[in-house]
Design a binder for these strands. Structure first.
Lengths: 134, 134
DNA sequence: GATTGTAATGTAATACTATTACATATGATC
DNA sequence: GATCATATGTAATAGTATTACATTACAATC
């Protein structure tokens, strides 16, 4: 039985930074946050992000060119995660909706399209932000 | 009754370039294609793209940072268009799948999230490319 | 313990994508 | 023809991502 290798130093730094953030961070924002830790070049961040994404610990938000720590317990299961992005407060909600997955799979089947990955991102105003101010 | 204004020169150039392409084009690819026509700066392309997107004549593919001419007859109707992107040949198929829209709307309703727009992009191998070579 | 192979790291340079700021032109309307 | 909104042109800069190359760390094997 193979055990998942431990995260390396840079990978841990990047993941911790993302996990501590309420909103998605760009690679350069992560870099800036980690300069005190000794990181100096974009590539150090991009490389860590790549590995973290492979493990499903981090997701890239395509419409923002930014990254979030995975919010799901077990993301590996379905490769079709969706994100709800609030335009006001910037928070991102990660979710898996069976009907969406079914719909996309259905289309793919009908058109003999082999899905490798998906980006499903809705943008709008979250419940907190649409509530009248206290 | 207001009539939609005609496209401007730059808008027409950009739209024609996209319509003539089999695959999505980046803003800079469009610019390069239109240098002979006199375009010189990225902004000229971005401005045209912005107007064309407002009219639903062009879509942005978020996961590619690129643009396509609208393939649908009447895109305006549903704001939830999906794209199937072939990793091999680069072609993009535009489609609206009721079930996907329902699924996302459902989640949004349950979470009091007001959807303003969506990016739904699946990537994989299209039917043409998965057929065995002749 | 030296050797070898692999993954991770460090650094610099560069490529690609997008926006801000400011100046000018064009066309419709009054 | 003065005014207003829209479209254009140009330059500079900001933001995102990759290529290329050199080095280091570490585990497996000899």
């Amino acid at each position: 039985m193979t055990v998942a290798a431990a995260l390396t130093k840079n990978q841990s730094l990047v993941l911790d930074t993302l996990a501590a953030s309420q909103t998605p961070l760009s690679a350069y924002a992560i870099l800036d946050a980690l300069r005190p830790e000794g990181l100096r070049a974009p590539l150090q961040v991009y490389r860590a992000l790549e590995k973290l994404q492979e493990r499903g610990l981090v997701h890239r938000i395509e419409s923002l060119n930014a990254f979030v720590a995975c919010g799901h317990p077990h993301c590996q299961e379905t490769e079709m995660i969706a994100f709800a992005i609030c335009e006001r407060c910037g928070t991102v909600d990660e979710f898996a909706e069976e009907k969406v997955v079914e719909g996309l799979s259905l289309w793919a089947e009908r058109h003999a399209f082999t899905i490798q990955k998906a980006a499903i991102e809705i943008r709008g105003i979250c419940s907190d932000c649409s509530r009248p101010a206290a």
